[in-house]
Computed example of a mutant assay.
Amino acid sequence: MKSKFAMVIYILFAIVSFLFGVKMFQMGDILRGVLFMVAVMCWGMCIYNNSSMIRREKQRGISVTQSNKKINKKKSKSR
């Protein structure tokens, strides 16, 4: 639950930073526009890291379940 909520916040801040960056470029303030675009890249890295963490947790859960099934099969065969 925490990672899904974090993902929503990261995406929201990335979109807002992008819009502010575009607005700064339109106003002629190049430095602030570049800084907001750098912020968009940072939020993008947060999104990427969060999604890869979710993927690793899912794979870990699948592997643990599969190993438990193998252990249970070995126990039932030995009995």
Rank of each mutant, 00 (worst) to 15 (best):
F5I: 06
G28C: 07
A6H: 03
R32K: 14
W43R: 08
S17Y: 00
K70I: 12
L12I: 05
S3E: 15
K74S: 08
S78A: 15
Q26G: 08
F36V: 01
R60F: 03
K74V: 14
Y48V: 09
D29C: 09
N49M: 09
C42K: 15
S78G: 05
L19H: 10
K77I: 13
Q26V: 12
G28A: 04
W43Q: 06
F36M: 13
V38G: 03
I11Y: 12
I62V: 14
N72G: 09
L31R: 03
K23L: 12
M24W: 03
I9W: 05
Q26R: 09
M45W: 13
R32C: 08
S67W: 07
N72T: 13
M7S: 13
I71N: 12
S52Q: 14
N68A: 06
F36Y: 15
I11G: 05
V8E: 11
K74Q: 09
M37V: 09
F18P: 09
L35A: 02
K4S: 10
K77V: 12
F5L: 14
W43T: 04
I15E: 00
G28L: 00
K74M: 13
A6S: 11
C46P: 04
R60K: 13
F20K: 11
G44N: 04
K58M: 07
R60G: 07
K70Q: 10
F5T: 11
I30C: 05
N68F: 13
V16K: 06
V8C: 06
G61R: 07
Q59W: 01
I47C: 04
G28V: 08
W43P: 01
M24E: 04
I9E: 10
I9H: 07
S17H: 07
S76A: 15
S78Q: 08
Q59E: 03
Q66P: 00
G21F: 04
G33W: 01
K4F: 02
A39H: 10
F5G: 10
F20A: 00
V64L: 04
R32N: 12
T65I: 06
I15R: 02
V8M: 12
S17T: 02
K2R: 09
Y10K: 03
S52L: 08
Q66F: 02
R56N: 12
V40W: 02
I9Y: 10
I11D: 10
I15K: 12
S51W: 05
K75T: 15
F36W: 14
F18W: 02
Q66C: 00
I11E: 15
M45F: 07
W43D: 00
K77M: 14
M53P: 03
I62H: 11
R56Q: 09
K70G: 07
R56S: 13
F18Q: 03
G44W: 10
K4H: 13
L31N: 15
